[in-house]
Design a protein around this nucleic acid. Sequence first.
DNA 1: TGCGATTAAATCGTGTGCGATTTATATAGA
DNA 2: TCTATATAAATCGCACACGATTTAATCGCA
Lengths: 154, 154
Amino acid sequence: MTETAPNASGGNPLDQFLCFSVYAAGLAFNRVYKPLLDPYGITYPQYLALVALSSKEGQTVSELGEKLHLESNTLTPLVKRLEAAGLVTRTRDTQDERVVRLGLTVAGSNLAKTALGCVPAEVLAATGMDQAALEELNGNLATLGATLRDFAGR
Amino acid sequence: MTETAPNASGGNPLDQFLCFSVYAAGLAFNRVYKPLLDPYGITYPQYLALVALSSKEGQTVSELGEKLHLESNTLTPLVKRLEAAGLVTRTRDTQDERVVRLGLTVAGSNLAKTALGCVPAEVLAATGMDQAALEELNGNLATLGATLRDFAGR
DNA sequence: TGCGATTAAATCGTGTGCGATTTATATAGA
DNA sequence: TCTATATAAATCGCACACGATTTAATCGCA
């Protein structure tokens, strides 16, 4: 829960907890992204996956999972939906048949480029933050996430 | 997406985005909470609901939703699970039968007290942050969340 | 070579979130 | 009064997350 200050009189007690601010900000980001991504027919986690897949061809499900901090139980269905949408390719590695290699189709690559061309600017505007504040907050949250994952064992 | 810096060479491109840091920190908090809450038989959102319900007796589903930033489509099933677990009471308001009044049972109240007595301290330790840094980050995230909700229309 | 251990991905069940709709109740105005 | 409108909660379907397990393939080592 991680309290920040003694509970003020009338307010929401949850507002005192960092974990809740993170939780609520995550919900809020999703609500900003939803109408921006709906035209592309993808969800926010799917968008993250496409961006992660853009950086390198032939990544495995595990490699994608390291970038998203997710595992195959979450990623396999997500990636299959992207495959069904014609955005991603899934191929068993011929050297090691346990491994699935992921790639973007032309449509997937184009969608990622197009979305990255407009969506981030709109989200940036929605935050109402300047670049310096944004970078500082991002750095602090990245550190916090890494510390928590380390504590939790992943 | 909200970028913070030009994409560095080898790293994870997602790490440059504030939205992803928030998303990943949320996942990480959940992973820290899970083993701490499992002994009580509740989930993290259920824990938040119990804390919110502790602050006032007889809150409506809508009032709880304002505190958690959720609506009845999410809260009704969650609250029914807490009721089934014997932690929460649900009663139709006699003055206005549309409204459901929520309360904590003795068990629910005790669980909230007990959990608040130990869990936050452990989570605080897991963050590895001091009180000042924690409060600053909490404030920045609360502001960001409010700005994003305002932009999204809730 | 063979067989137990390890690894990668997939599968299954549960609990969120949420858009869209429905149900039930209350309110307002002609 | 009667009916249209508004409101509170519930319902439904879908897409995550994730613990636990399963399936399939590879590796290690005698």
